[in-house]
Design a protein around this nucleic acid. Structure first.
Ligand SMILES: [Mn+2]
Ligand SMILES: [Mn+2]
Ligand SMILES: [Zn+2]
Ligand SMILES: [Zn+2]
Lengths: 143, 143
DNA sequence: TTGACAAATGCAACCTTGTTGCAATACAAT
DNA sequence: ATTGTATTGCAACAAGGTTGCATTTGTCAA
């Protein structure tokens, strides 16, 4: 019962191949992103999850690991508009997000084929490289 | 040549009718929002504009005035995803924004009839009350 | 196994954006 | 001019995040 989150293993192996180390915290964080919850998670939430599972990680370490995993393309940063960044596995394709204004929960919203950037007009000299579409309102529990 | 930004006057008169005072800083800030630049502005930028035009306003005052004008429906808050809020006159209808990732300039993007919220599906118990669509990339000067 | 070296970590101090309590000031009605 | 209160300034605070640097730990080669 030691090694859960089997899906995380290829990712960890790839990181090791690139010369990075597989530390306890790194394994746990990657494992957390691969675990059941598909909800985007913030640095503080992640730190708490680690603590709950018995590992005390410094705030700086968590931030640095999130930055690292983003740079390595393992996770992506999500800015839902409230004051904190969240992260989720990059494997999910392009999609949008919904934020509850009361409990600040973020949900992912699938999107078939998003053509928002093509529909954009009136920007003569602006090179668009991406977009974020955030809906907000009240979730089931909060409405 | 004392009173510029004539378009700001009805707004100021309406505020006065509601019992609020027309202080120097309030006049200047409302005037700034009505002046030529239609680019969304942050608290710090606004404070600098005031300073450049000869009026020193405290940081707290600027934040409180932006909050006040938002509450009064004169301006709206914009969250472009970088770490700072911006504000613009509420008179422009619903539209979206473009953020330059290098110089952090924000531009407004008109939108004919935005049906993004109607097209949203798969959220059984979530009551959507609004959305923000931010494009990002490189502006003319930065690309 | 054991060293050695670099990657990763912890800590404290710092930064930015924004907020709060409270005393002092300045509108505007009288 | 006087007065009541909206507004302001100041200092202190708070959340989220970053940085420098000394210490620890993962990895690999001997
Ligand atoms: Mn998502
Ligand atoms: Mn705008
Ligand atoms: Zn909620
Ligand atoms: Zn730019």
């Amino acid at each position: 019962m030691k090694q859960q989150n089997l899906a995380a293993l290829p990712t960890l192996a790839a990181l090791k191949d690139k010369g990075f180390r597989l530390t306890k915290i790194r394994r746990l964080i990657v494992g957390a992103f691969f675990s059941d919850t598909t909800v985007p998670v913030s640095a503080a939430e992640l730190q708490l999850q680690l603590l709950a599972s018995g590992t005390k990680a410094n705030k700086t370490t968590v931030y640095r690991e999130l930055e690292f995993l983003s740079a390595q393309g393992v996770i992506v940063e999500i800015n839902a508009g409230d004051g904190r960044k969240r992260y989720e596995l990059k494997r999910y394709g392009h999609h949008h997000h919904v934020l509850c204004l009361r409990c600040n929960t973020v949900e992912c919203v699938a999107v078939e084929n998003c053509a928002l950037e093509e529909q954009l007009s009136g920007l003569k000299d602006f090179k668009v490289t991406g977009h974020t579409l955030n809906f907000f309102g009240l979730c089931a529990e909060c409405r």
